[in-house]
């Protein structure tokens, strides 16, 4: 279940998700919202997505073109630039690095009481996530 706390985490990952979605298919703003919702990220607000796409374009990671729409004003379709593709690779690597670093920690059993200062928590639980060589 997605909680309000998860929304804060998703905010940081939104840029990566948008880069990845745009790498797969050119999309306009509301369509990207729908695609995020299809992934289960239903708490990602449209008010967060639209500015995030704009920032991608401002930073040169995405480019856009206007496509006429029968249901209203022309829609702005975004696609990744070369810099965006590089940024996606870097961000993906950074994400995996973070997950690999955190996975062993999070796989440990949560102790009933914190250990006293100066002691090291035992780590007899194997890492839950093995890094996949690229």
């Amino acid at each position: 279940m997605t909680t309000a706390h998860d929304v804060q985490m998703l905010k940081g990952a939104l840029r990566l998700a948008l880069l990845r979605l745009l790498a797969e298919r050119e999309s306009y703003g509301y369509e990207l919202v729908l695609r995020l919702h299809d992934l289960g990220l239903v708490d990602v607000a449209e008010g967060s997505v639209y500015p995030a796409i704009t920032r991608l374009e401002r930073d040169g990671l995405a480019s856009s073109r206007l496509v006429p729409s029968s249901s209203g004003p022309a829609r702005k379709y975004y696609h990744l630039t070369e810099a965006g593709t590089v940024a996606l690779r870097d961000a993906t690597a950074a994400w995996h690095h973070l997950v690999d670093a955190l996975a062993p920690l999070l796989a440990r059993e949560i102790p009933a009481e914190p250990a006293p200062p100066g002691t090291t928590p035992t780590d007899d639980t194997p890492p839950a996530h093995e890094a996949v060589p690229s």
Binding site: Y30, Y50, T54, S69, P73
Partner: peptide, 16 residues
């Protein structure tokens, strides 16, 4: 101007 235009387009799509 671009943001206004884009917002109107996204609102129209979302309103459907």
């Amino acid at each position: 101007r671009e943001i206004r235009r884009e917002l109107r387009a996204n609102l129209a799509a979302s309103a459907q």
